[in-house]
């Protein structure tokens, strides 16, 4: 399966793929959508907070009082219950995210964790499908082996996703840290680095899954549709089955990377490391299956 594997070839294929991704319409739209979706998610939470702080002097309060009030609201029972319901995590985890971590950033990262698998699909669905369809890979195969193409493009897709993710997190963190000044710089930095790692780790299995799906099809559009189906349908199916069944089927989510995503932000370092290992495990599984399929298929 890894016959002729050459790290130098992988690096060349990966760096070319990153550049090529930006030149294609899909890559450009993926960057734009990742930034606009991520910033819109952040805006949903940041704008009300900003309005409360800006409106405080008119109501006879100082900005510091408004910030204290926002902190109190973030740890109120209603907000804790809402986040508990959204994430399905126990109260101690939610209290860690809203109390010990910057609450505003925590809720933004939680929602980004929900959006990111789908955004990842937009940037990684066409790792091989388009070139299989156009028969363009035949020319590349004269110069390198299949494993180098597959792994190189997967790494290129990962770095491409990482670029837009970093840009998004830096923009949100700088705004919250420098403009809102709700939290100390250290808290914002710590929370942002953790979120960045969590989002990267969550993206990895989905990039590998999209690579596998991409190797199955010879049409980029079919690959995109099937990537979104492969990511979304199991989640919807499990949610519906859990809702209509008398049995507790929520554990089935653990059979997908989706079921482990919130643990990537856990306050318990053991749970967090377990979630990281699970994500890497899923990545290895999907990557190996994709590589096996790509190795055998007619190009």
């Amino acid at each position: 399966m890894l016959d002729g594997f050459n790290p130098r070839h992988v690096r060349i294929v990966g760096s070319y793929w990153m550049r090529f991704s930006l030149r294609t319409g899909g890559g450009l739209v993926a960057v734009l959508l990742a930034l606009v979706t991520g910033l819109t998610v952040a805006q949903v939470f940041i704008t009300p907070v900003e309005n409360v702080i800006a409106g405080a002097p008119e109501l006879g309060h100082t900005e510091d009082e408004a910030i204290d009030e926002i902190g109190r609201i973030a740890q109120s029972e209603q907000i804790v219950n809402m986040v508990e319901w959204l994430t399905g995590q126990d109260q101690s985890e939610v209290e860690y995210l809203l109390g010990e971590q910057p609450a505003l950033l925590s809720v933004i990262w939680l929602l980004l964790l929900v959006c990111f698998p789908f955004l990842t699909a937009l940037s990684s669905f066409n790792q091989t499908a388009g070139d299989i369809g156009s028969r363009g890979l035949r020319y590349l195969l004269l110069r390198t082996e299949r494993a180098n193409i597959y792994v190189g493009r997967a790494i290129g897709s990962t770095l491409f996703s990482l670029g837009s993710l970093l840009l998004l997190i830096v923009m949100v963190a700088l705004y919250v840290g420098l403009k809102l000044r709700l939290y100390s710089f250290g808290d914002v930095l710590g929370s942002s680095v953790t979120a960045c790692l969590a989002l990267v780790l969550l993206s990895l299995p989905y990039i590998a899954l999209c690579g596998w799906v991409s190797a199955m099809f010879d049409s980029a559009f079919a690959a995109l549709a099937m990537c979104l189906v492969a990511i979304g349908v199991p989640i919807v199916f499990i949610k519906i089955a859990d809702g209509v069944s008398d049995m507790d089927l929520a554990w089935m989510e653990r059979l997908t990377p989706w079921g482990w995503k919130y643990e990537l932000l856990s306050g318990d370092i053991g749970i967090r490391l377990l979630a990281c290992a699970v994500m890497l495990g899923f990545t290895a599984l999907f990557g190996a299956l994709g590589l096996m399929h790509f190795h055998r298929r007619d190009l």
């Binding site: 450009l28 606009v36 952040a42 805006q43 923009m171 705004y175």
Partner: peptide, 15 residues
Amino acid sequence: RFDFSLLIDIVYPAL
């Protein structure tokens, strides 16, 4: 008038 929506507005021109 610098608010968060401005960050979304500048994404496309900057890109």
